[in-house]
Amino acid sequence: MSTSAVKFYQVGSFAVGNRLLRDDERSVQSDPDRTNALTSGHRACQGCGEALGARYALDAAMRATGDQIIAVNATGCLEVFSTPYPESSWRIAWLHSLFGNAPAVATGVAAALKAKGDTITRVVAQGGDGATVDIGLGALSGMFERNDDVLYICYDNEAYMNTGVQRSGATPPAARTATTQAVGAHPGNVFGQGKYLPKIAMAHDIPYVATATIADLRDLEAKVERAMTIRGSRYLHILVPCPLGWGSASCDTIKIARLATQSGLFPVFEAINGEFVASSKIRKRVPVEEYLKLQTRYSHLFSPQRNDEVIDHLQRIADKNIERYQLMGE
């Protein structure tokens, strides 16, 4: 879709690099001198998907803007692990204010740049799923409505991780969190609640909405790059598995993101001016079970006995996504 396929060489477009490509065809992350917007020494957990996703996205934004960006960060893991005063891992202009107001602060930064006549520097706002779909939703909706010139990136790890894995509006059904324990007749998070922010963003008819994961770097970079060519409000929703909150092995973070896409549970697509335009196709379809069983937040679906009813329900959600977002085929 948004990436142009690399002509055959062992790994095509799938791996980070490819020693046989011309420099200008290579991913940002394969550059030995990449900017590392988020540098080493941060306090994210081993195998943190959010740390990785943020570096992927912001390095790409830096390349796209010639390093002329200001990032506004909501409260959450990404802010806490990167900036325990007096240390910071950020190598870009970076601002933090509150949990719920990142879109509003970003709007302000964009307005200030405009007032100064600065048409070069661009604004990125970022936050976790809690900051985005719950507490910051009002501010974000206002930002979309006004079509302020900000790229908002949501790093979706499907719960409030920073404060101890509480449920958010983006927590998937059946998942166990600190506030949706695996007890009672319907263990884990309930079905039928929560919100899917990419669709809410699309409903604002903003110029660009896209989803991505850390399992497809080339796609993620291409989407950031495309977003930076557009003025107005843009929304990028990136799935970033969390080994701590999801109960998965630290080495499996990317694998889990990949299985989320290959099962259909996390559709990867793009929408322009509110209209769906394209999706990344599933290469190797897997049953949702493959994805679920690597995470202890779903272990109650498999032991002490298997809960086929719930697994089937999750499978139906995946199947529906596959249909709705046209995830199969060429």
Partner: peptide, 10 residues
């Protein structure tokens, strides 16, 4: 392939 270089969160 640069995968290791790319995927390291640190």
């Amino acid at each position: 392939c640069d995968n290791c270089f790319g995927v390291c969160p640190d």
